[in-house]
Design a protein around this nucleic acid. Sequence first.
DNA 1: CGCATTCTTGACACCAGTCAACGTTAGTGG
DNA 2: CCACTAACGTTGACTGGTGTCAAGAATGCG
Lengths: 243, 243
Amino acid sequence: MQHVVDIIARKLGEHSSVTDTVVTALGRLTPQVRALAPREDIVRQGDKPSVSVVVLEGMLSRYHTLSNGRRQYLSFHIAGDLPDLQALFVEKMDHAVCAIDEAQVALVPHAQLHEQIDKVPDFASALWRETLIDAAIFREAITNNSARDPRARIAHFLCECYYRARAGKQERQGVCRLPLSQTQLGEALGISVVTVNRMVQQLRRTKAVDWVGHKLHVLNWQQLCELGEFDPAYLHLKRPLRM
Amino acid sequence: MQHVVDIIARKLGEHSSVTDTVVTALGRLTPQVRALAPREDIVRQGDKPSVSVVVLEGMLSRYHTLSNGRRQYLSFHIAGDLPDLQALFVEKMDHAVCAIDEAQVALVPHAQLHEQIDKVPDFASALWRETLIDAAIFREAITNNSARDPRARIAHFLCECYYRARAGKQERQGVCRLPLSQTQLGEALGISVVTVNRMVQQLRRTKAVDWVGHKLHVLNWQQLCELGEFDPAYLHLKRPLRM
DNA sequence: CGCATTCTTGACACCAGTCAACGTTAGTGG
DNA sequence: CCACTAACGTTGACTGGTGTCAAGAATGCG
């Protein structure tokens, strides 16, 4: 595993200019590394955390719990993501954060982050930008889950998943990890498992994409984008990927 | 109309402590006031604005435009809201902002905001918090549009609308403005007009709520909350309202 | 090997979308 | 002031897509 500083710096570099002062600020943090088991919660709804989570390895997710006990997954996070940055400024968690598969996270004390935010304006704006892009992804999810039919919805999700993984340069061309169950994907996109299953099969038949055993294979990126009406502008990368 | 400074200060005060330094910072802004006609765009998808919008009167909305021309409304904004604050840190708009009915807005140059953000940490954190709560509202919209049936979805929307209006103390007990058409509500919640219409009628029959001529009447708040599974925690008010 | 979870398939019902028509309201101009 | 129009709200009929239920196949883990 790379050093925590490098992981965060790489991530922030996707959308912000990571100056030396920012790297120095990152270096002053003393995070604590922790392993998470699949499905383990790291933050619960209603918590008032005093540390923020950085994903180092594996996949994390944020979710709401409904009154009937059902779960609504809100977002998924890979290495470099900071899924609960917001807790720096809004005390009480309105959602939970859990591991999807086995994961490694770093826990950074809020106090340290606040200190560097106050001292290093570039660091502050990079983190702020990070939370704003987070919000842009939520907006896209609203549109995806509200305006697209199940097949397009899944295709769009797969596009985003692959594109973000590639931006993180974690994976080789054409493949990325996607350690979700079909049930969980349904709980993210607001469709039933049965429909997820049928639509995934339809997508497979298009030969644009395959998703098997926690691996997503993109066979025809262009076509997959069309199926999902995917336009990566909302991810606000400094340098959009050529695919 | 109140002064722009007061309107923003009141809004920020809902979730942050508005110190004298913050008020001073606000006073240094020299916004330009502008009137908007119903349905007029103030920011378009793809724009790179150099000013940020503050709602003074009326209702504004953010929306995505889909490839088939359909519109997905993402959020609605009342006096005090800052619907495109994010443009301070992410150059290119990934969505548009329009007026719903006749509206007054103030336009604040980014340069001025950046200057005060750099100088006044309390101001920066209040604005940051504002954008984070914005994101929390988006998350709730994901859950609402993905996991609730049409009736609950509408009920939840009406709850949020009323609660936020009351937080802004704009309206007298039991009523608030809601200048949407049923078509627009459908385009926000991902349901057809016909279904919106039928569900609104069902809700009327419960005597919990009425919505007629751009006025929302809440007759039984408790019951309406139950119908919409509404819990205002995600709005992160400093002092939750007693209703 | 056995158990649990996940994936897959079929049957069926019904909710919600679409289409179409009509009623109502508000705004415009003669 | 009324006639006209456009936008919006309302209703009914119909249909098709999705959800639910249920059972079997495949996969993975201890």
